[in-house]
Every structure is written in structure tokens, then in C-alpha cells.
């Protein structure tokens, strides 16, 4: 079996740690849980963008060009795994409509759709990994909460991250109120209707805050960038990570990082575990009167 990592352009630019975590978790599962000899995670070098931005913004012909590329690039592999819920759903449910039924392209995208999976989905439904076997040596008790990308609806995986991470003991997974509502990212929507997008994001952050969790697990790079960016601008201490990172940290494959925001630019703001590294409830975590805090 050959497993390819589908990185997505957004994650390569914004969230390389999510990609590292995906590789580390997959390798851990293959080597130590399934004990598959010689199965590795490969990185097809030519991959770029799946075409979602074009598809969602009225350029289906341009998206089709990139869809064809995706099919070629991933043709040699048995499974294509990505940490991005949104790009996954594009391949799975949107590519088909770009090509005429019965055409070679259509067959190719159907084949690609059949072997493309979001990471947690791949672990759960394909490798059939009981999350209990992914418990770390010293399960974390830190409160976390999960926001699933809306596009996971399209592949019937919305709401599936939190239960999986709970059973994998990735922390004290708190239920996010109104979890079904979109965070307001929506790709270009976030720049076309910034006020609406922001209002939705702030509502999501308020719900996150109400759980008491200092770490938010978001199953899409776009949602994560949107929510982390809002939190950072408001100097709210919140760490936004991907499900892959949550698993990798829990398994001890990655060091637990520091929260973002909190105190941008402070001398020890970048030091994981430092006293004021954005610890919620810490004296200067989000205090608008703090020297570096507040709204610019």
C-alpha cells in the first residue's frame, strides 16, 4: 500500500506543523499500531493546489485544470490523506460535477475521490484504528475543544473529530456550544463580507471561551487561520491546532506548543511554557490595557 500526503497549499503556507503532525501520526500508526513493515507516507512533490479557490469563486474551468493535475499526481497511490477537511471534501464531492459523466476525466476524479480521506476519517474508517490505542503514555488533562470544518458535512464527518480525540485522550475535550454553526471563514467570503465573517468568528470564539479550553482543535487550515487571526488581533490567548497536532502531541511525537496571541511581541511570548505565554486567566492574557495588547 502506498499512502500519499495531500498537503494543500494553505497548510504548506500557513500550517506546516499540521502537516508534520499528519506524517508523524500516520507513521506511528503504521509502525507501532498496525506493524505494517515498509509502508511509508510519501510526499508527491508536484502537488500544489486542489482548485478549491477557483471552484468556489466562479472559475470551474480553472478548477478543472487543477483537478486533472491532482488525478495524475495521486494516480500511483492507494490512499491520499490530508489534514484539511475542506480540500478533502472538494476532491470527494465537488470534482465530479466538473466533468462529463463517462469521460476519462470523470472516471479519474471518481477514482481519486474514492481513495481520498481526511486524516481522522482515514484512521477511523480505513485503517480502523480504535482511538483508545492512540492514547499517549501520560494522557493530557488540559481542556481542549473542537471545531469541525463545515465542509466535513459533505462527507458525513461533521462532528466526528471531538469523539475521536476524546477517546484518544488528547485532553479534556469539552463540548463546544453551537458547534454546528459555521465559524465564518468561507474562503473569499472572509474578505468579501469581512464584517459578517468577523461577527461569526467572534461568536465562535465566545463559545470557545465559554468552554474554558485554551486550545482549539480546528479541522481545516482556513478556519484555523481565521479564528487564530481574530484571537491574535484581540490579544486573546488561544492555541489553534489541527486534529493531527492534537494526536501527535498526545502521543509525544510533537512537543506541546505555546498558545498564540496572548502577548504578541513580548520577550517570552514565543517560549513554550513560559509563565505569560498566553495562559488563559493569566494576568496579562488578553488584558486590553497590557502594553502590547488591545486592538491596534
Amino acid at each position: 500500500m502506498r499512502i500519499a500526503l495531500f498537503t494543500t497549499c494553505l497548510a504548506e503556507a500557513l500550517a506546516p506543523r499540521a502537516l508534520k503532525a499528519t506524517v508523524l501520526v500516520l507513521e506511528h500508526v503504521l509502525e507501532h499500531v498496525l506493524e505494517h513493515e515498509g509502508v511509508t507516507v510519501e510526499l508527491p512533490a508536484a502537488q500544489t493546489c486542489c482548485g478549491q479557490p477557483m471552484l468556489s469563486n466562479g472559475l470551474p474551468a480553472d478548477a478543472a485544470i487543477l483537478a486533472r493535475r491532482m488525478c495524475e499526481i495521486f494516480a500511483p497511490y492507494n490512499a491520499v490523506v490530508t489534514p484539511s477537511g475542506s480540500c478533502c471534501s472538494v476532491v470527494r464531492e465537488k470534482y465530479e460535477a466538473l466533468f462529463a459523466r463517462g469521460s476519462a476525466d470523470h472516471k479519474a476524479v471518481v477514482a481519486l475521490a474514492a481513495k481520498t480521506f481526511e486524516l481522522i476519517e482515514f484512521l477511523e474508517t480505513q485503517l480502523k484504528i480504535d482511538p483508545a490505542t492512540l492514547r499517549g503514555k501520560t494522557p493530557s488533562a488540559a481542556p481542549i475543544t473542537c471545531h469541525d470544518a463545515c465542509h466535513l458535512r459533505g462527507i458525513h464527518r461533521h462532528g466526528s473529530t471531538a469523539p475521536y480525540l476524546t477517546r484518544a485522550c488528547c485532553g479534556d475535550v469539552r463540548e463546544l456550544p453551537d458547534a454546528a454553526q459555521c465559524c465564518g471563514f468561507g474562503g473569499m467570503f472572509s474578505t468579501q463580507f469581512p464584517e459578517v465573517s468577523t461577527a461569526l468568528g467572534e461568536e465562535k470564539l465566545a463559545h470557545v471561551a465559554s468552554t474554558g479550553a485554551a486550545t482549539l482543535v480546528a479541522s481545516d487550515t482556513g478556519c484555523a487561520a481565521h479564528l487564530a487571526g481574530l484571537a491574535h488581533r484581540k490579544n486573546v490567548a488561544l492555541r489553534v491546532i489541527s486534529p493531527a497536532e492534537a494526536l501527535a502531541e498526545s502521543l509525544g511525537l510533537l512537543e506541546t506548543g505555546a498558545p498564540n496571541g496572548g502577548n504578541p511581541g513580548a520577550p517570552n511570548g514565543g517560549n513554550p511554557g513560559a509563565p505569560n505565554g498566553g495562559n488563559p486567566g493569566a494576568p496579562n492574557g488578553g488584558n486590553p490595557g497590557a502594553p502590547n495588547g488591545g486592538k491596534p
Binding site: 474578505t191 487571526g229 488581533r233
Partner: peptide, 17 residues
Amino acid sequence: GWTQSRDLGIATGESFR
């Protein structure tokens, strides 16, 4: 439209590749 209310966090350390 993005930066009117949000910062954009970009990872600048070692790239994934």
C-alpha cells in the same frame, strides 16, 4: 478585507518540505 479585523499568522520557520 482580512486584516481589517484579523491578523494573518504565517509559519516562517522550517517549511514542511
